[in-house]
Design a protein around this nucleic acid. Structure first.
Lengths: 124, 124, 124, 124
DNA sequence: GTGGTCTAGACCACC
DNA sequence: GTGGTCTAGACCACG
């Protein structure tokens, strides 16, 4: 069972998007694996203090992307293979890092200056 | 006069926010300096093909942050000193880089892995 | 004994409905005849890998329609006469074909275009 | 502006799915074209007597499939090219006709019997 | 109990 | 006014 307990929603944007991202990052990080059981909508709703409909929306997005499988009356499970994990990894990197790089470029930083600045701000 | 012509709004989020960010990044990059003249709201609206209300909102935000000064019926000018530029630089770095770092951390990357990945994706 | 082994549930909708339809189509096709013995609920549950409750629901529906007869502790048998078979045949045609016809009509196809398209897609 | 007035929801399945199908069929039939303006969520909600959230869900699906484009504060428009229209046409045919063909096959009908039966049931 | 749909209505961001 | 998110809660289908 995937744990959402430590999941603090300090992120920005819609809640359902945060949940989707949390799951994707968990997959890339290896915390979430193929065959893992998702918490039921009701349970996660209570855990996060979020409306069941919002959870449902997140689960629906994950299902549309083929990351989980849901069947009425049955629990939902994570369905992954290596290719999918790799695709998610690249998608996240593209989103997170790509946006930042173009931002820094627009700010006039060179590659070296940018990397130096990031290194300085990233305190383990 | 600041040029917005090359400004492509492929960015995400509200248009007014994109305009504000574009100006701030221009300041940090040195493209925009103290005393520069802002295009009139009407002109910029036409240039970018954006609703005048949206332009107005962006100018209002820049004004609230003390980055430009507008007087009824007169042109708007950029008002900067070194301290302000530095504050903007730090704010942008915090926003752009900070968000990415926490994202990469959640993906399970260590500082070294993260920096290596960024370096690989940042093709000058 | 009716064979469900080759029954692949790639169909859409509820599983119990798929089972009911499978039986009805088998009757129309002549694969299932009056007096045939139904597999026990337990056996069919194992064969199809489906929850016993779901099988029970399907049997109940078939029983309600007078297609099978069950007696506590005894086997279930198919009970048919010509009129029933004909009624089922018409019901299936109505459901399967009627839905498609109204769909094609809504897509703007004329009778001739529709028939031509179906003929082209139906590769024996 | 696309008209939904004659749209009677006698269809089966979720309402949002019926709306999506109605739009797709309208596109294939030529009633809906590139650049057409979609009714606002609120308006369509009132027209069909359906909750705005349900409309939103349908619009979201259409947007996810690249059939319409929505921007906050602006109206939603249909965005189509020939390739998309053809893809939709094939998708509908596959769904509507394919399901029926496999049903008739399971009922033991040959291609000729099936076509004959359909022709008989399709009264212009 | 679990997934899925729908209603009713509020609230916010955007243009 | 328009799109988008969220809550609260009901209801149904499914297993």
């Amino acid at each position: 069972m995937i744990t959402f307990e430590k999941f603090t929603m300090d992120d920005s944007g819609p809640i359902y998007g945060q949940i989707v991202r949390y799951v994707k990052r968990g997959i890339v990080a290896g915390r979430i694996e193929n065959g893992d059981e998702m918490p039921s909508r009701r349970v996660l709703s209570a855990t996060l203090g979020v409306n069941p409909n919002t959870i449902q929306k997140a689960y629906r997005m994950l299902e549309d992307e083929g990351i989980i499988q849901s069947h009425a009356g049955a629990k939902s499970y994570v369905v992954l293979d290596e290719a999918k994990v790799e695709a998610i990894r690249e998608e996240l990197a593209e989103n997170d890092i790509g946006a930042m790089i173009s931002a820094l470029k627009q700010s006039g930083l060179t590659r070296e200056e940018g990397l130096e600045l990031i290194g300085r701000l990233w305190k383990e």
